[in-house]
Nucleic acid binder design. Structure first.
Length: 508
RNA sequence: GCACCGCUAGCUCAACUGGCAGAGCAGCUGACUCUUAAUCAGCGGGUUGGGGGUUCAAGUCCCUCGCGGUGCACCA
């Protein structure tokens, strides 16, 4: 050690707080470089993917030889050796694997020794050799030569124990390596989102993009994230919904528009909520909420078909969920009245609502409007009774400021919520297009904001000006894309999002 | 935001009322030419989430901060 250069000493002291296994792997990397070999080559003579190999030679008899030489690359996920013959399971990541067999007779003493000394679990490796089947019938590449494709400096977790949820989410790359289901979710999500786009496109909808940075948040009741524009010298808001811009587009004659994009709401996270979440909103001129309910059901059914090939979904936990047919619609006030065996209407006095809430321990704030109390009661009494997908129809007017009054029932608006698996998957409306009434509602909301309701909408004069140009009668729907994935797979929202927001780790 | 529970080796987890910090996998050394979580022999690996306190003695008790989980609240 006395003639070790200063730089090497510096590295050694720098490694004092590095785990032993990482130090060892760093030294293996350095050994490769010292030998004039590459630890991270720029390209490799790959001839075929592991999936193609499986496809083509998957049914070889045990001990079969093909005489075909291939070059493949993948990650070593399992390795074992018997002295003069080494085996490694190489994974393409998406679940396909192939076995590499490195034998003394084929590669020679030095190459075999290097393999055993320098190849670790988790390394990306390239092997070239004949496609054969082992004595046990395992499809294998009988290696002529091998080289490092990318040296991994960190050990993989134990393959046969579940990583804890926090590690899976924080280090999704490891989760994707270890669990084919993690990759399957990413692929399922693409299929579902792609199905939504196709279904809407087939119905002559245009996909448009509206601002994520807004000078005032609107289109939903939620607290926004605030950011700042240096150039404009003003605060901007990350959008909480695209609604007000999509409606401007409809005013302008884009009769059928949709957007699939992220919304941001400055609120807590749990198994069904993420501060940033993907949302589909679509608007159709000359449609009402009933037509939108039909389209929404069809979109979900077409997405299920694209993802699962069936309208009967098998969830992650093995349970079956039938999405076929036409889904029931229940009336909010009617079903709640039935559930509590007492007639409830939009005219029911506040004192009655409050005592009903108190009776079942629903906490409420004095600032809450009557309709909100009714919705709370509904969630408590009726939602748990749902068995399949269910549309809840006709909500209180005071909780839906952007929705048109019901055409025949007083005190309620033409709004539905679609519940699947106990959570709200989508919501649809006959949109309020009367600019005078809209202004009254928004002024009322803005005054709530002045009274301290941080979720109330500020007055958007430009939106009102747009409506004053005449918006055709329209239906609108908002659907949580992450929640659609939850409904299709039975997984929690953080599993459907590849990289959900997590608080930073300390001491990093 | 509030309450409760948790944080120990690279990973998954043990460690009684405070009394020498351990196992499996992974790693290292050696053996083994058809293995499938290979096997056999041996060995190393820890600031017990951070900081402070009580105590002869703290993974364990107290305070505090961080992160996570669950429930509540808010929301889709």
């Amino acid at each position: 050690m006395s003639d070790v250069p200063l730089i090497a000493l510096a590295i050694v002291s720098d490694e004092l707080d590095v785990p032993e296994q990482v130090q060892i792997r760093r030294h293996k990397r350095q050994t490769l470089l010292d030998r004039g070999l590459q630890a991270y080559p720029v390209s490799l003579p790959i001839t075929v993917s592991i999936a193609q190999l499986r496809e083509q030679y998957g049914h070889l008899e045990a001990e079969a030889e093909t005489g075909v030489t291939v070059g493949i690359a993948g990650r070593v996920i399992f390795s074992r050796n018997t002295g003069k013959l080494a085996f490694a399971t190489i994974s393409a990541g998406s679940g396909e694997t192939i076995q590499a067999m490195v034998s003394l007779g084929q590669v020679g003493e030095e190459s075999l020794a290097d393999w055993k000394a320098l190849v670790d679990l988790g390394d990306q490796i390239f092997v070239q050799g004949e496609v054969i089947s082992s004595k046990r019938g395992e499809l294998s590449v009988f290696v002529d030569s091998w080289s490092m494709a990318a040296k991994s400096l960190r050990p993989l977790p134990v393959a046969h124990k579940e990583m804890n949820e926090e590690s899976r989410v924080r280090q999704r790359y490891v989760d994707l390596i270890m669990r084919p289901e993690a990759q399957a979710m990413a692929r399922t999500r693409v299929k579902a989102v792609s199905a939504l786009r196709t279904s809407l496109s087939n119905r002559d909808y245009l996909e448009i993009e509206t601002p994520m940075l807004q000078t005032q948040p609107g289109g939903a009741t939620a607290r926004p994230f605030i950011t700042h524009s240096n150039a404009f010298g003003i605060d901007l808001y990350l959008r909480i919904a695209p609604e007000l811009f999509l409606k401007r587009a409809v005013v302008g004659g884009l009769d059928r528009v949709f957007e699939i994009n992220r919304n941001f709401r400055n609120e807590g996270a749990d198994s069904t909520h993420s501060p940033e979440f993907a949302m589909l909103e679509f608007y159709q001129a000359y449609a009402d909420y009933q037509e939108m309910a039909t389209i929404t059901r069809e979109l979900i059914q077409e997405a299920a078909q694209a993802v699962a090939g069936s309208l009967t979904l098998i969830h992650f936990d093995g349970s079956e969920h039938d999405l076929s047919g036409v889904w029931p619609q229940i009336d909010l006030y009617g079903s709640l009245s039935q559930a509590i065996d007492q007639d409830l209407t939009p005219e029911t006095p506040r004192a009655v609502l409050e005592s009903l809430c108190k009776a079942v321990d629903i906490k409420f704030a004095p600032t809450w409007v009557n309709g909100k109390l009714v919705e709370e009661l509904f969630e408590h009494y009726v939602i748990p009774t749902f068995t399949g997908p269910t549309f809840v129809m006709d909500f209180p007017v005071d909780t839906s400021p952007l929705t048109r009054d019901h055409r025949s029932k007083s005190g309620v608006v033409e709004k539905w919520d679609l519940y699947v698996n106990g959570f709200e998957l989508a919501t649809g409306y006959s949109e309020l297009v009367d600019p005078v009434i809209q202004r009254e509602r928004l002024v009322e909301q803005a005054s709530l904001g002045e009274k301290g309701d941080k979720e109330a909408m500020p007055l958007d004069e430009d939106f009102l000006r747009a409506l004053e140009h005449g918006m055709p009668p329209s239906g609108g729907v908002g659907m949580g894309v992450d929640r659609l994935l939850m409904a299709l797979t039975g997984q929690g929202i953080r599993e459907t999002i590849l990289f959900p927001l997590v608080k930073p780790e300390r001491d990093q």
